[in-house]
Design a protein around this nucleic acid. Sequence first.
DNA 1: TTATTAATCGGTCAACCGACCAATCTTCTC
DNA 2: GAGAAGATTGGTCGGTTGACCGATTAATAA
Lengths: 212, 212
Amino acid sequence: MSSPAKKVDLRRARGEDTRVLILDAARDALAEDGYARTTTRAIADRADVQLSLVHYHFRGKQHLLAEVLKRENERLLERQRALFAGPETLAEKWRTACAYLSEDLRSGYVRILWELWAVGLADEELAGHWRDAIAGWRNLLTGVAEEWKAELDFDLPISPRALATLVGNAFLGAEAEILAGVTEQEAPHVAALESIGELIDWAERRSRDDDR
Amino acid sequence: MSSPAKKVDLRRARGEDTRVLILDAARDALAEDGYARTTTRAIADRADVQLSLVHYHFRGKQHLLAEVLKRENERLLERQRALFAGPETLAEKWRTACAYLSEDLRSGYVRILWELWAVGLADEELAGHWRDAIAGWRNLLTGVAEEWKAELDFDLPISPRALATLVGNAFLGAEAEILAGVTEQEAPHVAALESIGELIDWAERRSRDDDR
DNA sequence: TTATTAATCGGTCAACCGACCAATCTTCTC
DNA sequence: GAGAAGATTGGTCGGTTGACCGATTAATAA
């Protein structure tokens, strides 16, 4: 068992390593310097790799960035799925989700998401990847909203789909403003999102009261 | 009165005309082609003007775009102020505001706003102008929310400031998604925003009921 | 050993952009 | 009408970018 008939092509393994190296470098470059300063050369420098390797492993800048978006998004989407699958109340989960926002702002993921949104303005293919990424979040939110509505004993004056869209858009808008440099002092972005948690509490209390 | 002693320097008047010509061209270029394709040359071509005039009248690309943003934003902000100063109920005004969104999407203003937001990611000065533009909308919304809360007979479970931020962000998020090509079919952006109008109705009915 | 494939290297290329400038034309002032 | 001020012209320049390519090295397969 210690030496199974594993056929690892050392060349391919090495290649895969550089691939990851380049992906990480591209992610860091986007998060720290933004797209404008993220040239294929800057990425190659960061990865300490020859420029042509970027074109060898990925077909070019466009495809590289698309993979960066996909990888980072799936990672965080998985975390979010795990959160909402947990046993806590929705209000508690919501508060955690708000905490994640601050975390993702610090880590640079939010900036990556929006830098690539901006690229999508002039690059329909990348815009498509961005839509795919966001669709993941929207589907998750919609599922949560539907479950929640089913649990409540009274009718919400808004459909779960519209509610999920509204809440998701509020998140996106807050991210955009924060990235533009609008401070929490000028506009209470996070505080406003957290207050949604209180609205959830309020609705659930009302639902419990109806039970009595 | 028909011929007052007005000293119009024809040179300056001519200059002012070309200024407007360039501003209009820059606006149209941004709205139709996006920032990536909006070069100073493209603007000069559109305005049918020599390239160097762009640098003569404006100090450069950056300052030109800043003025485009300011001009267009003030125009639409004025329209919105007039709307909310009107005699209709808030719910009615809200529906008009939602209709304005579709109009501004068609006219290209929304795209201009967001193309310049994207530029602001790498240009702190322009980001500042963007924040100024948005602050106008936020102040307007906050004022509306405060008035509305004062008229209601029961306490909203959220502060007017947070409410205005939330609603404003929902608008921004919807705009960003629409610009990225997310269709109304995939996510009911406008429908979700319009449903806020129904929430307003609901709250006002509740307020009237309390009066009895 | 030989032949084949994968990965890497160093360098080149055409295209484009914003900024800049010297010369020229137009209008106003005195 | 001379000279000044404002507006416009045509052209250039340095710098950057993404893409591309032929040659080279390393690893596998025959």
